Simulated assay, not measured.
Amino acid sequence: MSQVVTVRDAATAALLRDGVASGLEVLLLRRHASHVFGANAYVFPGGALDAADEDADLRARCVGDADAIDEAVGDNGFALAMAAIRECFEEAGLLVACASHAQVTADRRDALRAALNAQATTWVDVVSEMDLRFDLDALAFFAHWTTPAGPPKRYSTRFFAAAAPEGEAYCDGLETTHVWWAPPAQAVAAHDRGDIELMTPTRATLESLARYPDADTALAALMNATTVRVP
């Protein structure tokens, strides 16, 4: 008898910026070879929903109408947006759609990230120490993909996009092993050549992004796009 695999809620974020010479770039991270799901694939920062992502203190730290994201995304909308933001910090060291109002050194910020990845602290505690304020209006919800039956893990993943914050992304060596600010068309071409692995939702997103010349144009289009839902 085949085992029923539970479908877990998850979130991911396509971070967009303009390259010096190449136009639009999107952040791709190569997953560690040890992963059961998507080993060595290039993906956007993302991961499964945590119970702490819906903590009331996080919602209280939002600028503007935090309920709007629930309307856009549906069930667990706020928590899924928070999961996308948290995963960007865990996997890439970037604070997306938020700003720190505390004086935190770079070394301390790195230590908080390491502790979060080691489950030695919680996202709520990290947010409190850095005194983060969230602007969920900076996130564009544009797609919802569900892993088909068959793989050892299945996810119901909401896709967000945001402008990349200042600073360089860097992988943690555990979840992710390589950073690539990729021109979307180049990433698709690399996949066609067999040089990199891409999962279907990642490739579909890159193909869509390849139509846009710069980050502002792409983000504006995704803000106003009809959400793609793939069951």
Score class of each variant (00 low, 15 high):
20 V>E: 14
66 A>T: 08
116 L>D: 02
96 V>I: 12
207 E>G: 09
131 D>S: 10
85 I>P: 00
143 A>R: 11
131 D>W: 00
182 A>D: 00
209 L>W: 05
102 A>Y: 00
92 A>T: 13
7 V>N: 09
59 R>N: 02
97 A>E: 05
20 V>G: 03
24 L>W: 12
61 R>L: 01
29 L>F: 08
12 T>P: 05
164 A>D: 13
98 C>L: 03
181 W>L: 11
66 A>S: 14
207 E>A: 11
18 D>Q: 08
185 A>D: 13
194 G>P: 01
82 M>K: 09
153 K>I: 10
165 P>F: 12
184 P>E: 00
94 L>G: 01
155 Y>G: 04
2 S>Y: 00
191 H>K: 07
209 L>V: 05
141 F>W: 10
68 A>N: 00
45 P>S: 10
121 T>N: 07
228 V>P: 04
47 G>H: 11
9 D>E: 15
154 R>A: 13
13 A>Y: 04
41 A>M: 08
193 R>S: 15
225 A>C: 14
111 A>Y: 00
132 L>Q: 05
23 G>C: 08
216 D>M: 05
41 A>C: 10
119 Q>H: 08
216 D>H: 14
160 F>I: 01
6 T>Q: 12
56 A>P: 15
104 V>H: 11
121 T>D: 11
117 N>T: 09
191 H>N: 02
34 S>A: 15
229 R>M: 04
157 T>S: 13
40 N>H: 08
46 G>D: 10
217 T>Q: 10
181 W>G: 03
78 F>G: 11
185 A>N: 10
179 V>N: 02
85 I>S: 02
21 A>V: 13
215 A>R: 15
98 C>T: 04
27 L>Y: 09
188 V>T: 06
44 F>L: 04
117 N>F: 00
87 E>P: 04
117 N>Q: 03
196 I>P: 01
163 A>N: 09
217 T>S: 13
142 F>C: 04
95 L>F: 12
46 G>T: 06
126 V>R: 00
156 S>D: 15
152 P>L: 13
15 L>E: 06
130 M>D: 08
17 R>Q: 13
189 A>S: 09
31 R>N: 09
52 A>M: 13
170 Y>G: 05
105 T>M: 06
121 T>Y: 03
50 D>Y: 07
162 A>R: 13
108 R>M: 07
161 A>K: 06
7 V>Y: 06
125 D>I: 09
189 A>C: 00
140 A>N: 06
106 A>W: 04
64 G>L: 11
23 G>W: 01
170 Y>F: 15
1 M>I: 01
101 H>F: 05
166 E>Y: 11
192 D>A: 12
